[in-house]
Amino acid sequence: MSARDEILARVREALAPAEVGSPAAEVGSGGAEVGPGYRTASGLDEDALVELLVDRLLDYRARVEVVTSDGLAEAIRTRLEGKRFVAPDGLPTSWLHPSLAEGRVTDSREAPVDVVRLDELDAVVTSSAVSIAETGTIVLDGSPDQGRRAISLVPDHHVCVVPVQTIVGIVPEGFARLDPTRPLTLISGPSATSDIELERVEGVHGPRTLDVIIAR
């Protein structure tokens, strides 16, 4: 018998005969009709969402600025001026001030920047798919304005734009907006570790500076 068939047979044997197909097997799956007992919506308005997200990001020691969409290009320029940075090819061109053209390297799935080259760059700028205010979590899903996973990982400084309409209140609202089959990266603050005496220290292998610009 193949390992697959044997393991599946063992599982069936372990569960047999009482449980398989019995009402007990339906526990949990019937929950959808009555709704889960936990919160599925926060009910927060835009101001409250932004305020909560900023608070949580600062708690993780990320840098945060809230700008109007008119001020976004300027906010990005002040962070990347004079630096060599990578941007995904789908990033809106209006976000990047012409003065940044010299330091810019463009990455795409079709023309990926080599990882050693990425390591030599100072920064990366991306958009984001969803942000969860309550946990201070920003999700990248590999869309063209966010790019391949490697580009937001290897450079040491991540400038991440959060469009205000992508902010939700709590975790269930966040997952409801995401497609799980896309490559997802949930980011909550800069890289950190609690491995030494269980105290949090920011900055290990991922970007040591997380620079969030919330655009409303």
Partner: peptide
């Protein structure tokens, strides 16, 4: 589980990074 696990393990609202992948994504990873 993404609410239960981080709060129970490192005592954070969310752990810094979570990766989800489904098979192979062409051109990424």
């Amino acid at each position: 589980f993404m609410q239960l696990l981080p709060r129970s393990s490192t005592g954070e609202r969310m752990n810094p990074y979570t990766s989800l992948w489904t098979g192979a994504t062409p051109g990424d990873g």
